[in-house]
Design a protein around this nucleic acid. Sequence first.
DNA 1: TATGAATGAGTATTCATTCAT
DNA 2: TATGAATGAATACTCATTCAT
Lengths: 192, 192, 192, 192
Amino acid sequence: MGSTPRRGDTRQRIQDVALELFAAQGYEKTSLREIAEHLEVTKAALYYHFKTKEDIVLSLFQDLARPLDELIAWGQEQPRTLETKLELLRRYSAALDTAEPMMRFVHENQATVRELRVGPIFKERVLTLSGLIRDPEAPLLEQTRSVTALFTLHARMFALQTLEGDPKDKREALLEVALDLLTQAHASSDDA
Amino acid sequence: MGSTPRRGDTRQRIQDVALELFAAQGYEKTSLREIAEHLEVTKAALYYHFKTKEDIVLSLFQDLARPLDELIAWGQEQPRTLETKLELLRRYSAALDTAEPMMRFVHENQATVRELRVGPIFKERVLTLSGLIRDPEAPLLEQTRSVTALFTLHARMFALQTLEGDPKDKREALLEVALDLLTQAHASSDDA
Amino acid sequence: MGSTPRRGDTRQRIQDVALELFAAQGYEKTSLREIAEHLEVTKAALYYHFKTKEDIVLSLFQDLARPLDELIAWGQEQPRTLETKLELLRRYSAALDTAEPMMRFVHENQATVRELRVGPIFKERVLTLSGLIRDPEAPLLEQTRSVTALFTLHARMFALQTLEGDPKDKREALLEVALDLLTQAHASSDDA
Amino acid sequence: MGSTPRRGDTRQRIQDVALELFAAQGYEKTSLREIAEHLEVTKAALYYHFKTKEDIVLSLFQDLARPLDELIAWGQEQPRTLETKLELLRRYSAALDTAEPMMRFVHENQATVRELRVGPIFKERVLTLSGLIRDPEAPLLEQTRSVTALFTLHARMFALQTLEGDPKDKREALLEVALDLLTQAHASSDDA
DNA sequence: TATGAATGAGTATTCATTCAT
DNA sequence: TATGAATGAATACTCATTCAT
């Protein structure tokens, strides 16, 4: 057959194609017409499954941000020790493995996402996460180090391209750099 | 007074308003109508000064990327020592002080910028810069550390918001974290 | 009543109105807004049925050039005798009866049509037709006479206005002049 | 030197370039910006020499239609004999040698020209000319033949391309065909 | 679970034209 | 004899969205 009309999974297929195009070309430059054409359905069909274009993004966020929420929930139950934070970094890095397409979309369309309903939601997640990793009582330098550790993990989405090598190796290297940074942050904090 | 029609500086004013709006709302969501209204001129006036919307971005890039180009030129003439690279970081941080609006725009509109004529130009600058700071012979981990040092400086454009404190202090803290990272990269490289 | 919204024939109505306006005022001077207003639909409705303004012309050409294509096909199957060519003129004259609006449009907007996608297509038809009626071996004068015979039939679209009288009579007169011209062309060819 | 700024002949140069572009791409598709760029002057400079875009056409017509007017004047003073009419054709053919660019422009932009101020003026010339060549008392067929003779001379502007050969030879062939047609028209008129 | 047909509001861009200098 | 700077009105085209079927 080749292009057998899949039954019941249209919603899923819309999400897949949409995320792919949004990430590749940007949210604004991707029209519903384009998405529909990729799926060989009409634009109106999209509206059967999603009330608006923005709702597609919202649904993508909800599906893909689950791991992130679980991570935050876990973090909030742990003691605020260095070991907890190191584990937080390890788990965040793992979470990014599945959430990467969505994260890349958010990362590359920040100006746009900020004006979408997911904008505030997303920002709050990031703030919470950074709140879990830094100690608001610590000196600015150490807080900076901690936060840098967190965002270093995002580098897989852009600085990654610069270097050659197996993506997995690079992710592990990034994690190691991040873990180091956090450890240093704590070391000097303890000195002071 | 108040709205005295300024002479001869219209081109400059277009650039200013455009960069402001592009950075605040995104390139696609900012229409030429909106820019024109902010300036109290007609859309057609914009077209007297710039051939297309994209050309406004190009001109912004050319004006604001000067410091970056000078930095790269400087870097290419220096010996590839640790001290050179540390100075590179310091100078890059300083360069970001003036280039920040443009950098923020690029950062928050990556998906869009990629499809613009400035996209490839910009990417090439970043690659060159990262080529100046890392040693392609070094192990992956150390290269990762070096590149992370570079991109850490960009954090002022987003992670900055997370922390309280004087922006200047934060920038200095970021620079210190970056310098540390680079120093470590070299230290372990030398060990091996 | 009066302006009952017709069902399913919108595409056809767009073609009708467009051809009428294109022929009357020219392609460039006829805006899609104008066509839409004549039809009491929005501009966007036109774009549902045709991808571009040029595509409207293309579709008109395809619908109306059918008789011409059939004529050419017929001509290519016949022996290249005088009688065939005379019949070709008769049939061409008849074909013009239905193709006249389109032919008038092409005739009066030559500079424009030349830059459209139909331009080359149309030109090729005319060349083929003229290739069927003249003998490339004959002396220049006789070829000129033959080609003139062909184009004389077009005179109904302009020289027609000069003379008074029933349009049908004039068309018949033109045909007779054309047939005469062709006969003479052959007569003198045979002499030589 | 190479592009020495010619003094005083700007008006003439505008006319030349305008006619060239109008004929090549059409009146509507040729913008004043384009004309100005070809001449390496500003659009505003065109407005120093001509009040409107249409005025350029008007001026072209006035300069180039002179031969035509003289021809008509001559024709109106002659006796309405066959010989006069044959000479009219000969002179018209000669007039076309210089007026051809303008005639081609009119011919290929009929829909546009009709709406310009030159439209009616031009039409009147053509009607007058055709009035000089046909006999309103003659049967329709003979009038048709006479008018066809006249318009046959226009064929150099389009049917010309079809045939190979020296342009001059082709023009002479067309003239001969036209003269023949007119002679026949008279012959049969006299019979009847 | 979709489609065909349409809309209203918008977009970037172009044009002929004007006018102070 | 020009130019620099601008305008107002238009143009082709696109988009997210709607709704009857």
